[in-house]
Amino acid sequence: MKILILCTGNSCRSQMAHGFLQSFDAALDVHSAGTKASGKLNPKAVEVMKDAGIDISHHTSDSVDKYLNDEWDYVITVCGGAKETCPMFSGKVKHQLHIGFDDPSDAEGTPEFIQSEFIRVRDQIKEAFYNFYLQIKKENEQ
């Protein structure tokens, strides 16, 4: 099953979702991309994922253009910006979903607060994508 996770910068939320989905099932073909890819991962995202036992430091921040000609079982946007600017995959996507999350990169305040925002969003992503994974697994067993 091929899954593409889209965000605006492809540096944080989409990378976390990518890491979690692959950790749930190594047989899934998971990729992530950005509508305006930043070209790098957010170090805080890498850190909080490592704390959760998942290494995403080897991921790359890619433009969605790289994947437009591919066929996908699911294309999932995780931020409002990507949802609004998501390019049309014109029939090459079986299911297009939006599972949105706050951007912890926007958090302001003490280092402790910023860290807590990354952890909060990471945990929300883990729960939402685990539920998504269970749902698609159940549907494929029918």
Rank of each mutant, 00 (worst) to 15 (best):
K126R: 14
K40Q: 12
S23Q: 04
N131M: 03
G100R: 00
F101M: 00
I125V: 10
A26S: 15
D55Y: 02
D29Y: 07
T35M: 01
S63P: 14
G80R: 02
L28D: 08
G9D: 11
A27G: 12
S32Q: 04
Q142A: 07
H95F: 10
I5G: 08
A52I: 08
L28N: 09
T77S: 06
H18P: 06
S61Y: 12
K36H: 15
Y130W: 11
K126P: 10
F101H: 03
Y67N: 13
D103S: 06
S14F: 05
T60A: 11
R13S: 09
P43H: 15
K2Y: 10
F113K: 14
Q115G: 03
S14H: 02
D70L: 15
A33M: 09
S38K: 15
H31P: 03
Q142W: 14
N69G: 07
Y67L: 12
G81D: 03
G100K: 00
G19H: 07
F129Y: 07
V48M: 12
K94H: 09
V121R: 01
F20S: 04
K44Y: 15
A45T: 06
I136C: 06
I5N: 03
I136R: 03
H58E: 13
Q124L: 10
E117S: 10
F118A: 01
I3F: 13
I56Y: 08
F132L: 00
Y133N: 02
A33C: 08
Q124I: 02
G81V: 04
F113R: 08
L21I: 12
V93Q: 08
M49D: 05
V121W: 13
G100F: 00
G81R: 10
K2R: 03
I136F: 00
H59Q: 07
F24M: 05
K83I: 05
Q22P: 04
V121S: 00
Y133S: 02
G19E: 05
D51G: 13
A128T: 06
C79P: 01
G81M: 08
G9Y: 08
G9T: 07
Y67P: 12
G81S: 12
Q135P: 08
I125M: 01
D106E: 15
Q142L: 14
A17K: 05
R13Q: 04
N10D: 05
Q15K: 03
K36L: 14
K137C: 03
Q15R: 07
D123C: 01
G81Q: 11
P111I: 01
K126G: 00
E47C: 06
F24L: 05
S90V: 02
E127T: 09
I76V: 09
D102N: 11
S57R: 11
E112D: 12
A52G: 01
G19W: 02
T8D: 04
D62T: 12
E141N: 06
E84W: 11
L6A: 02
F89E: 13
S63W: 04
L4N: 06
K137R: 09
G19F: 00
G34F: 07
S63E: 11
L97N: 12
M88H: 15
H18D: 15
A82I: 10
R13V: 03
R122G: 07
V64Q: 09
G81L: 04
A37K: 13
D25L: 03
K83T: 13
Q135V: 01
E47D: 09
F24P: 06
D29T: 07
K66Y: 14
A82E: 13
E84V: 14
I99M: 12
S11H: 02
S63D: 11
K44S: 13
E71S: 12
G80Y: 06
Q15E: 04
D62P: 08
C12N: 05
E139L: 10
